[in-house]
Amino acid sequence: MDLFFQQVLNGLTLGGVYCLVALGLTLVYGVLHVPNFAHGAFYMAGAFVSFHLMTAWGWPYWLAMLGSAACVALLAVLAERLVFHPLRHASPLHPMIAAIGVLLFLEAAAQAIWGADFQRMQSPYTGIVDLAGVTAPVQRLLIIGAAFALVVIVHLFLTRTVTGSTIVAMAQTREGAALVGINANRVAMLTFALSGVLAAVAATLYAPINLVYPAMGHLVITKAFVIIILGGMGSVPGAIAGGLIIGLAESFGAFYVSDHYKDIIAFTLLVVILSLRPQGLFPNAAR
């Protein structure tokens, strides 16, 4: 039983990180219909900026996370302005190719600045607590708590504030949004900034129990795509539910099936679920 709860804990950790990454990806897709392959590079950049702020500048962990969120938000807005905005009337293939370009550019830049080596980020939270027989590293509990808090904050932002509603409005009916006077450019920038913040926070949360390196975004972004396809492209609840499903499935799969197959579990699930529900779990909920 303890082993079972251990897997739940691990699954929630992974799920929390996946939720944050997938949420940003699905928002950008919902508003701009761009499958942003560069989102994984935002994630990677978030980890490196935090790492840099902590090791080179001696910033404390949480402050570094804030700094990284601000930097990656700026980076995401720049990508929107310089790359995706000029392509908004082009055929859908163009922004896709451009997104891959941004991804390659950011990875090369990270490698040039920080090198290709694996780096370890030190978190101040190295302790372990014992929760009724389940050993829980503090960092994992922190990931779960912070990720879910952030998901709730984003949800409240989207549903309770006028600014957040403009994002949802544009995702639901682009033309309707323009006709009530919502500025599409502002919403596009805002959405990219939000996706950057989420990616940076996710990366900074997860990095201390993982490694930091230029290609670290690859696996995360492919899983995030699986999640949003599973949840319904552009759907916010879909991204959250999908993130948790994939996180838990991987953790249980790694333990009860085999650790070697951990990374294909997401894709297997994708195939199974889409063959049963081709429209995804939440086809047009809250888009």
């Binding site: 006028v162 509603s165 949802v168 409005a169 639901q172 009916t173 033309e175 309707g176």
Partner: peptide, 14 residues
């Protein structure tokens, strides 16, 4: 061109 997933009130307020 309404916002179909939002409440009537929210549509009006937007």
């Amino acid at each position: 061109k309404l916002f179909p997933g939002m409440s009537v009130m929210k549509n009006l307020m937007l």
